[in-house]
Simulated assay, not measured.
Amino acid sequence: MRFPTLTAVLALSAVALSACGQGGEQNAGQSAAPQGAAQGQVWAAGSSTVFPFATRVAETVARTTGGAPAKVESLGTGGGFKLFCGGAGKGFPDVANASRAMKKSEWDACQANGVTDILEIKIGYDGIVIANAKAAPTFNITREQIYKALAAEVPQGSGFATNTVANWSDVAPGLPNERIVAYGPPPTSGTRDAFVELAMEKGAEKVPAMAALKASDEEAFKQRSHVLRKDGAWIDAGENDNVIVQTLEKTPGAVGVFGYSFLENNLDKVKAAKIEGVEPTLANISNGSYPLSRSLYIYVKKANLGVTPGLREFVDGFLSEAAVGRGGYLIQRGLIPLHTEELAKQREAVKALTPMTAPKS
């Protein structure tokens, strides 16, 4: 079976954004407002997973306050942090949307560029899913098998060799006899970061030679376990997860890697694999039993609160009862809400405007 190359990334919700007056997506190196220009609306940039939640908050806040809707851009978590940490002026975002926690290197970049007091706000949970077309074979796969299928190099003898395994059934008996082709997010994506940490790295730990490498040289272990194949088995599919869903419909032998919310919104088109026997459901992700569970965040420049019109309302909107209470509009869109105690903790942190401390790594 031949698989088409993914050649275009569609703009997620471009029509909706245009209708509500928000700007379209930009490259991470571009800024919509030049230095010194008035920034009359909230600007949030980053994770493609958080993007649909942020746009929904922007629309709701604008409707209830009558102010200009926030401009929300999907650049990937890494791209969002790069722009957010680029400076404290008006030409940089107020908010970074993230599908993973900020790294120490990103924190250092922020500090170096005058972005000091930063609020870290956890807004909910998400799971990374491995999905394929509804009519395709059903997967029940382990993290070790994911590593063996998608790692660029695998242990062989006393060293490493290029991974040439062709079919899923060659990885382990019982897996579908389909060619290994996985469409997933690019290196700038927080979903990609979480996938290599939660699936590839954890799977590599189950391989004796890799476990030994971790014990002797953890940095080398991470480098080996985080590198994905470049021979067509893994295909970077851009920051728009809807494109991956569309591709899976056309190529039923392929699998895709994206966030749970996109699965929730496309259950008529795709289905998710079980990971080590556990289905990606709201309950399993919320209680942590699903192996590829993660937290979602927004990062806010404290200095911009009270300066950028509508920023406080935008931030409060993510944790409001209307958004994350029973039947809340973000839950309806696929966000898995925080536990009651965690939600109260995050609300208190926002109320107190408590800045985050430096990440450990």
Rank of each mutant, 00 (worst) to 15 (best):
residue 233 A to F: 07
residue 251 T to E: 15
residue 227 V to Y: 03
residue 249 E to D: 12
residue 224 R to K: 15
residue 236 D to K: 07
residue 227 V to M: 09
residue 228 L to T: 07
residue 230 K to T: 13
residue 241 D to S: 11
residue 222 K to C: 07
residue 222 K to T: 04
residue 233 A to G: 15
residue 250 K to M: 11
residue 236 D to N: 15
residue 233 A to S: 15
residue 237 A to N: 05
residue 241 D to P: 00
residue 248 L to H: 11
residue 248 L to W: 11
residue 223 Q to F: 02
residue 225 S to T: 15
residue 242 N to K: 03
residue 231 D to Q: 08
residue 250 K to Q: 15
residue 222 K to V: 08
residue 230 K to E: 14
residue 224 R to P: 02
residue 228 L to Y: 11
residue 249 E to N: 13
residue 252 P to T: 09
residue 224 R to T: 12
residue 224 R to A: 15
residue 252 P to W: 00
residue 229 R to Q: 07
residue 232 G to R: 08
residue 234 W to Y: 15
residue 225 S to K: 08
residue 219 E to A: 11
residue 230 K to C: 02
residue 232 G to T: 06
residue 232 G to V: 02
residue 236 D to S: 14
residue 225 S to H: 05
residue 237 A to E: 02
residue 239 E to R: 06
residue 255 V to H: 06
residue 244 I to N: 02
residue 226 H to T: 09
residue 248 L to K: 12
residue 240 N to I: 05
residue 245 V to P: 03
residue 230 K to Y: 11
residue 237 A to W: 02
residue 235 I to G: 03
residue 251 T to I: 06
residue 236 D to V: 08
residue 241 D to E: 11
residue 247 T to S: 14
residue 245 V to A: 04
residue 221 F to E: 03
residue 240 N to L: 07
residue 238 G to F: 07
residue 235 I to E: 10
residue 240 N to E: 10
residue 232 G to A: 10
residue 248 L to N: 11
residue 239 E to S: 10
residue 245 V to R: 02
residue 223 Q to H: 11
residue 235 I to N: 12
residue 254 A to H: 05
residue 237 A to V: 04
residue 239 E to A: 10
residue 227 V to R: 06
residue 251 T to M: 09
residue 236 D to F: 15
residue 245 V to T: 07
residue 245 V to F: 06
residue 223 Q to A: 12
residue 254 A to E: 06
residue 225 S to Q: 13
residue 242 N to S: 14
residue 221 F to Q: 00
residue 221 F to H: 05
residue 230 K to W: 10
residue 243 V to S: 11
residue 251 T to Y: 02
residue 242 N to C: 04
residue 228 L to N: 04
residue 237 A to H: 04
residue 229 R to T: 03
residue 254 A to G: 12
residue 224 R to G: 06
residue 247 T to Q: 14
